[in-house]
Nucleic acid binder design. Structure first.
Length: 495
RNA sequence: GGCUCCAUGGUCAAGCGGUUAAGACACCGCCCUUUCACGGCGGUAACCCGGGUUCGAUUCCCGGUGGAGUCACCA
């Protein structure tokens, strides 16, 4: 007895971008392959030429690349050549295979030519809808004789699969056995009149020929699976194992619409989330490990632990709050250098002159924000004051720290502290502030928060001593003086 | 509408005939603290309904309800 090698695949149609749901399917396949020493294949389902575009192909692969999902076999992408022995990996390049297999089915009487026109069919469907009957193919061309076909001459025809009598069993790893009466299926078209294969034929031929052992995909394909099972049997291919996982729902509980922000996985990159967060979070949307209570997973852990047995049957809503939390966890796992590298482009983008700062300084800056920010993008409001002199002060902060009885005293005390320092360090600042607070009978908070407002214009941010240290002595003192002047003058006006 | 799938707190979820029904996020307190955040401690909050089966059902079966998916010469 030999254990068959695991071969699984993700087969997106490149019609836009990498959808979060496609990413989930890809991730599960990939993790499954990795945890079983199997092969993960990327196949592009671009049979419908009208709906594909090279830009879309690129955008989609970009999504995979960002997530770090790498395929063992797949089409050419960017500077990567096509990989694998079972190519080509684009359906548009496999037309001959489909025609050949379709012809075989026709020859064996398992499929037949249908001369009905699209218009005819549409009319029938409309009529059915009007009469509230389920829309079904009439079966008009099912039993055409040789003579009748001969009469048609070279009229265009589609090819329909002759659905057998009975019932089809989909023995699904996740859903369990699912039985569907064959009556529910029309004699569906497998080749269009223009000669192109329809999705159902293409997937089955590809899965068969590529020796796919496990078909893991969203359960929006569950009913399609019945058609596929029939096709596998008709073509004489061994049946793969099916695993239909639930879809990702939006926060309202619906299938995550393409139009929603976040449907594109790259939206999350845009919003400051780490790819490792997305991998972790998406994996959790329908899977749990044996180890109870653990939610934080690295990719390596997932590759080890992932099993189809632990997949959930019910759909999961996408929860932004939890994603934020998880992203914070992953940000904290980064090395400070790593965080710095990831954050630099964002700051540059915001127009800050980061390249004028020494690397060590930038790393320190990243370090004092690491525990604060839930998303990478938050680095901007947390550090903007380093690069831009604050214009004005937070309104609430002003009332709390500039307009109280002791405010001016606190600011002046803080300035004295700064002036009195022989060295400009976190420790010296801290010591000096603490001592002054005691001597002047000021709350340390008043001292610190007033200073924060003066230096940053805000009430929230990194630790004050750390931030002041990085801002530098001269700049800090300058900003204190400006603030003191501001409090004095505007205070006079208002009273 | 037909068919199919699903159903434990607001959300994600353990559970697999007998449990005080885990845990995480969110929320609310408290602690820590220079703010925010992190961290720590504690709290509110759930088995959709009705029938069976059983000594006993969140758990098994049936029905209902609710939600979702799918019904193309799209994939």
């Amino acid at each position: 007895m030999t254990t068959p090698v695991v071969r699984c695949r993700v087969a997106p149609s490149p019609s836009g971008f990498l959808h979060i749901g496609t990413a989930k399917a890809a991730l599960y396949n990939w993790l499954f392959a990795r945890s079983h020493g199997g092969t993960f294949i990327l196949r592009l389902e671009d049979t419908d030429a009208e709906r594909t575009d090279e830009q879309y192909v690129h955008a989609m692969c970009e999504g995979f690349k960002w997530l770090g999902i790498e395929w063992d076999e797949g089409p050419e992408f960017g500077d990567e050549p096509e990989k694998g022995e079972y190519g080509p990996y684009r359906q548009s390049q496999r037309r001959d295979l489909y025609s050949r297999e379709a012809a075989r089915l026709v020859a064996e009487g398992k499929a037949y030519r249908c001369y009905c026109t699209k218009e005819e069919l549409d009319a029938q469907r409309e009529l059915a809808a009007k009469e509230k009957r389920p829309p079904r193919y009439s079966g008009k061309c099912r039993n055409l004789t040789e003579e009748e076909i001969a009469v048609k001459g070279d009229a265009p025809f589609a090819i329909r699969f002759r659905v057998p009598e009975g019932e089809t069993l989909i023995d699904d790893i996740i859903q369990g056995p699912v039985r569907i009466k064959n009556k529910e299926y029309d004699d569906f078209i497998i080749v269009k009149s223009n000669g192109d294969a329809i999705f159902h034929l293409a997937v089955v031929v590809d899965d068969g020929l590529m020796k796919i052992t496990h078909v893991i995909r969203g359960d929006d394909h569950l009913t399609n699976a019945g058609r596929h099972v029939m096709l596998f049997n008709a073509l004489g291919y061994p049946l793969p194992q099916f695993a239909h996982h639930p879809l990702i729902h939006d926060e309202q509980g619906r299938k995550y619409s393409k139009r929603l922000h976040g449907a594109n996985v790259l939206d999350w990159r845009e919003d400051g989330y780490l790819p490792e967060t997305m991998i972790n979070y998406i994996s959790l949307l329908g899977w749990t490990s044996e180890e109870e209570g653990k939610e934080f997973y690295t990719l390596e852990e997932l590759k080890q632990l992932f099993t189809l047995k632990r997949l959930t049957k019910s759909p999961a809503r996408f929860d932004r709050k939890k994603l934020d939390w998880l992203n914070g966890q992953h940000i904290r796992m980064l090395t400070v250098e790593g965080l710095c590298d990831r954050v630099l482009p964002l700051l540059r983008n915001a127009g800050f002159a980061v390249d004028e700062k020494p690397r060590e300084w930038l790393i320190e800056m990243a370090a004092i924000c690491q525990e604060k920010i839930p998303t990478l993008n938050q680095i901007v409001p947390y550090t903007d004051f380093f690069f831009v002199t604050p214009e004005g002060y937070d309104e609430k902060g002003e009332r709390k720290f500039f307009r109280k009885e002791n405010s001016l005293k606190a600011l002046e005390t803080a300035l004295q502290c700064m002036n009195g320092l022989s060295e400009w360090t976190v420790e010296s600042l801290k010591a000096s502030y603490e001592q002054a607070a005691q001597e002047k009978e000021l709350k340390i908070g008043a001292l610190v928060n007033g200073t924060r407002l003066a230096l940053t214009g805000k009430t929230v941010g990194p630790g004050l001593y750390e931030l002041a240290k990085l801002l530098g002595r001269e700049e800090s003192i300058g900003r204190m003086q400006v603030a003191i002047e501001y409090v004095k003058t505007s205070g006079e006006e208002s009273s």
